[in-house]
Every structure is written in structure tokens, then in C-alpha cells.
Design a protein around this nucleic acid. Structure first.
Lengths: 235, 235
DNA sequence: AAGGTAAGGTCAACCCTGTTGGCATAAGAG
DNA sequence: CTCTTATGCCAACAGGGTTGACCTTACCTT
């Protein structure tokens, strides 16, 4: 690595780019989110981001080790925003539900960015803060460590996995205006009842439900499971 | 599109490539799976696949509209394999559990391919066959259509979402031998107890559990939920 | 069996991508 | 005020998907 990246905290000199803007990790990540929204999940390129920042593409390598490193920073930003829009109440079940929805919503607020990042563990500070919070809620509810870790694992993986999946269709819909509901109606509703009796019988219900996320339902299932464990540990 | 793709069924002439092999969608998809396994989830390129097939990269465009189209065909292949390794017994709960595990296992058998495809709905024939099967199991169990569609939605999305997530770490581990468990131990176990008391208290449990999939647990939660609905509908 | 049609393999070229080494310049330390 | 060096810029590299033109040969028709 000929050009070692300087940590944001240790950054001293702030030299403006040719177009006048002064860069920072924060500004770069924010601009990357905008570029992703405008150009789709595959539209974030070093050249395009450089142009959006008014800087040479290679300048990015002064702030991130590569596009992959930048991608993880974007993911951490979404995690951070999820935690910002959440406050503890003391009711573990309500808190966990709210946190799950906050994570899901934070990623879905930037579907194109979520597609890139949601299926990756970043190991960055704000993701770790979320993990700490979840474990705190579960242990605070009275679950034994082993059980808390199990529920935590299912919770975070489920939240991220659904965020990635749901963001995928959302981003796709916005990129190519195919209309997902239309796809369901056009593809699935046309299947003959002889070969696909079950799809044919439920085509209308499918078309109405599939464009929406199954995450809320999965989240409630997880909360039910956790509640059962909490009740058992209480006796 | 100057070169319209000929549907596989309508393909008449089978002209061997320069190196002698005769192409087909099946051979291309199979070779793509091999290339993915050998070169990682980002290692499937038109040029590399062409070389592996002993054909010019542009030949691929006679069979698929583009790399994206090929990607969806790969995903459908994995779905097809999942359904092949599954047989109905008549016990809805056992059948659904087995099918979920078959889907999950089929994708994880090709982690690099799964990363590319699991977060996408292909709308291709074998994916539709899986959907039809799931709905058949649930309706056969006696669930009302609206409930069956809801459980189906959660089931298929959960299975695909976890497949994508789990494949991600699996593919990553195989690509860059970083060792995911090591990452957990090195990053999370080092956090000071003052700032991260809950992670610190459960670090060992986390390191042991996080490298494994949370899908089995999530699947059982879904089956419990479905069983409750079946019981209610029976009364 | 001969001939025509076009499917399908090949080639060269296009513009895109991430990334890097060398260079220029100005910010901030002393 | 000077010096160091962080930081922005430039040019270039290898490799990516994709396409239009070309050629060859498998197959259908006669």
C-alpha cells in the first residue's frame, strides 16, 4: 500500500479540492448515499463519486483503503442512524421491537445502499454499539447469557437479512420501473390452474402481499419466542 | 438488442465451439458454478467463463441476455436442486422443515453463487415450482388461503434472506482466509468492559455461536407460529 | 443430393471500472 | 518565514461487460 490511509481523527490538514469543497469521511459517505440513490446500487463508482464531490477519484484513496472499505463505512452509517432514531423505555419487548424496526427502516430508507451493505458484517464502531444495545436489552430482561446470545444472534441476522432482501426489491423497483406488483400479477397470475393449482387459487392474495415486507411478521415470531424464554426463566 | 437470445427449447443447431465442446444453457450454468467456486463470488466474468468453456466470451450472449440474466439462471438452478433433494411425506410440519433446510443447504452448497443470487427473485420456472410446493403444503395442512399466503411469504423470504446472509460469510471465509471466528475473537473480545459490558460478558459465547447460522432457530420459530395457526383453524 | 438460410461461434473494438505511482501545492508546525 | 509532508491531481494500467460485423457450418427445403 503506497498510500496509507490516515485515520479521520488524526487528520490535520484540510486542503480544499480544486472545486473548493473540503473533504471528510462524513461528507464522502453522505455524498455516496446520494449517488447511490440517484444512480442505483451498482451506480456508485470512484469516478462518479469523485465527480459528485468535485474531486479526483484517486483522492478517495486518501480516506478509504478502497471501494470496499468505503462500502463498509456506508453500512456503518446506516447502523448509526438506526440507533439514533431509537430510545430505550425499559420495556424489553417494546424496546427490541422498536430497535428491529429502526434497523429495518434505516436500511430501507436507502435501498440502494442497503443492497450493497446489509449482507456484510462491518465490525465498525456503530455496528458494535447496536450489538451492545441488543445484548443489553436481552440480558436486562432476565435471560441467561447463553439464551440471550442465541436470541441476539437470530435477531440481528434476521434483521439484516430481511433488510437486504427487502431493499433488493425496493432498489430494483426504483431502478427499472418494472413495478414489482405488476410482475407478480403478470407472471404468477398467468400460471394455469392445472399445473399450479395452489398459486392459481391464491394469485390475488399473493399479488397483494408479496410486494410488502415479511419482516414485521418474522420479528413478532422472534419476540414471541423470546417472551416464552423470559417467562420460563422467571419461574 | 441486435442479437436476440434464442430460447433453449427452440434451439436447433448445435455447432461446436472452436475447442470442440457443444454449448447449452445447462453446460454454461454448470461451468459458471464451477468458476464461482474456484474464483469467488466476484470472480465470474464473461471472459473467464468463456475461457472455462473454451468459447469466446461473446458467445454467452447467444444464450443469455447478459451477465445479469445468467445470474438469475444460476439462482434458478440452485432452487431446482433444492426441490430435487426433497420428497413429501404428508406431515406438513416435517415437510416444511425439510424443504426449508433443503433450500438453505442448496444455496450454502455454492456459497459464492448464493451471494450473487439469493437476494433476488428470479421469476423463473423452478423457483415457481418451489413456491407452488410450499403453498401446497400449507393449504394441505388446513390453513385458510390468507393465512397460508402469509406464512408462505415469511417462509420463502426468511429462507432466501438467511441463505444470502449465511452464504456471505461462508464465501468470504473461503475467499480471504481471515477466519470469521478469529474476527469475532479479535474484534469483539478486545472491547473494554467499561464501554461494552454486555459484549464483554458474553464474548466467549458470541465467538462460539456467531460463525454458525441462525436459520435453524428462525425456521423453528416459524414452524411454531404456523402450528399455532393450524391448531386454531382446526377448532 | 444440392442449395439456401440463418444460427451460432469468433474477432476487434468500445467505454467503463478500481487502483496506483509520480508530481504539485499549500497547510500547519517550528 | 521556512520546511515538511499531507493531501489533491494527473496519467496510465489491467481487466470488466457488451456490441456489430464477419464467417462458417448445421439444418431445412427442394
Amino acid at each position: 500500500m503506497a498510500k496509507p490511509v490516515v485515520r479521520e481523527a488524526a487528520r490535520r490538514r484540510r486542503r480544499p479540492t480544486r472545486s473548493g469543497t473540503v473533504l471528510s469521511e462524513e461528507i464522502i459517505v453522505g455524498t455516496a448515499l446520494r449517488v447511490l440513490r440517484e444512480h442505483g446500487s451498482t451506480g456508485l463508482t470512484a469516478r462518479r463519486l469523485g465527480a459528485a464531490l468535485g474531486a479526483d477519484p484517486s483522492t478517495l484513496y486518501r480516506y478509504f483503503a478502497g471501494m470496499d472499505d468505503l462500502t463498509r463505512a456506508i453500512g456503518d452509517e446506516l447502523m448509526g442512524r438506526a440507533l439514533e432514531g431509537w430510545t430505550a423505555t425499559g420495556d424489553w419487548r417494546a424496546d427490541l421491537r422498536a430497535l428491529g424496526r429502526a434497523i429495518h427502516a434505516s436500511y430501507l430508507a436507502h435501498p440502494q445502499a442497503a443492497v450493497l451493505t446489509a449482507s456484510r458484517v462491518t465490525g465498525r464502531p456503530r455496528e458494535i454499539a447496536v450489538d451492545e444495545t441488543i445484548l443489553g436489552i436481552l440480558r436486562g430482561a432476565g435471560l441467561a447469557d447463553a439464551v440471550a446470545v442465541g436470541v441476539y444472534h437470530a435477531f440481528i441476522d434476521q434483521s439484516l437479512a430481511f433488510a437486504a432482501l427487502d431493499a433488493g426489491s425496493l432498489a430494483l423497483t426504483e431502478e427499472a420501473r418494472t413495478g414489482d406488483e405488476e410482475m407478480w400479477r403478470s407472471t404468477y397470475a398467468r400460471l394455469p390452474a392445472e399445473s399450479h393449482p395452489n398459486i392459481a387459487a391464491t394469485a390475488e392474495l399473493l399479488a397483494r402481499r408479496m410486494p410488502h415486507s415479511a419482516y414485521p411478521m418474522a420479528l413478532e415470531m422472534l419476540l414471541d419466542h423470546a417472551a416464552a424464554r423470559v417467562a420460563r426463566s422467571g419461574t
